[in-house]
Write a protein that binds this DNA or RNA. Structure first.
Length: 271
DNA sequence: ATGCGGACCTGTTAGC
DNA sequence: TGCTAACAGGTCCGCA
């Protein structure tokens, strides 16, 4: 479900309801997410106020007074704020209940998501420590990608989806930004010029920003913290458009698998 | 060191 | 219509 725009849409959607609120209780119905939900979270977060809701890559950071809850939505995870008592349904694994009566509910059918608790600087957490720069910040520049990619034979699509290189570029937006930049997804990362990486960085930003403005992409089931779908699906130029005419040249969009992920491109517009 | 495949899960869809 | 296989928005780990 979520790439960076969906995670950010979720953050923006839920933050107003939980900022400044005090956690009253945490109910865990199924602890077995990608990693077991820590018992320390359940023990230590109640009684604390949520001071800030941040995002790092696709991780959401809930800063409390003493400690930080780190949450990843995985492939199918979803957060909602419920204003009143609502019966749990299938895959409602964790509830963070607030003194106000509101509940932050984590639902995740595939359980690829995870929830962690740290009392240190979350940036030093093992899962966050080695993350690359944010694509919407100043640190991501064409020359950075150019330098990092030298001597790498890996497909450029896998390269930009590597969170150690840059965070937040998932399978949809990798295909979309490579199309916009006119780069073939299978081209070796080390065989792309500085000028083309500069163009690619621009397109990664454009695609992510537009997706964010549309509230993310809803393919099947993504909804934001208020239950609304995202509308970026209407803007997709290549993703899931196999066989349909390229919107630039009219040739049919092609599909191939790169590192076990479906990849979409136009063989005429992308080299 | 880099890069690949496998693994973790359930739900939906395509194809026979 | 019903069964089965393939696939799905992520990413860590272990092995070559």
């Amino acid at each position: 479900m979520p790439e960076l725009p969906e995670v950010e849409t979720t953050r923006i959607g839920i933050a107003p309801y939980i900022l400044g609120e005090t956690v009253a209780r945490i109910t865990i119905r199924n602890r077995n997410l990608r990693w077991p939900v820590s018992r320390r979270l359940q023990r230590e977060l109640p009684g604390q106020q949520i001071r800030k809701v941040d995002r790092r890559g696709k991780y959401l950071l809930f800063h409390a007074e003493r400690g930080c809850m780190i949450l990843h939505l995985g492939m199918s995870g979803h957060l909602r704020v419920l204003q009143s008592k609502t019966a749990a349904t299938a895959h409602d694994h964790v509830d963070i209940e607030f003194a106000s009566g509101a509940t932050l509910r984590f639902n995740d059918p595939r359980r690829f998501g995870s929830i962690h608790w740290t009392m240190k600087d979350p940036a030093q957490h093992a899962l966050l420590k080695h993350l690359g720069p944010e694509p919407l910040g100043e640190d991501l520049q064409g020359d950075y990608l150019f330098q990092q990619s030298r001597k790498r034979r890996q497909a450029v699509k896998s390269f930009i989806m590597d969170s150690r290189i840059v965070v937040g570029v998932g399978n949809i937006y990798a295909s979309e930004s490579l199309f916009a930049a006119g780069i073939h997804p299978q081209r070796g990362a080390g065989r792309i010029s500085l000028a083309r990486y500069t163009a690619l960085v621009d397109e990664i930003r454009n695609v992510l920003k537009l997706a964010l403005a549309r509230g993310g992409t809803t393919l099947r089931d993504f909804v934001d913290g208020d239950g609304r779908p995202g509308y970026f699906r209407n803007e997709l130029k290549v993703y899931d458009r196999t066989g349909l005419p390229c919107l630039k040249c009219g040739q049919p969009i092609k599909q191939l698998r790169i590192a076990q992920r479906s990849s979409f491109y136009c063989s005429c517009c992308q080299r």
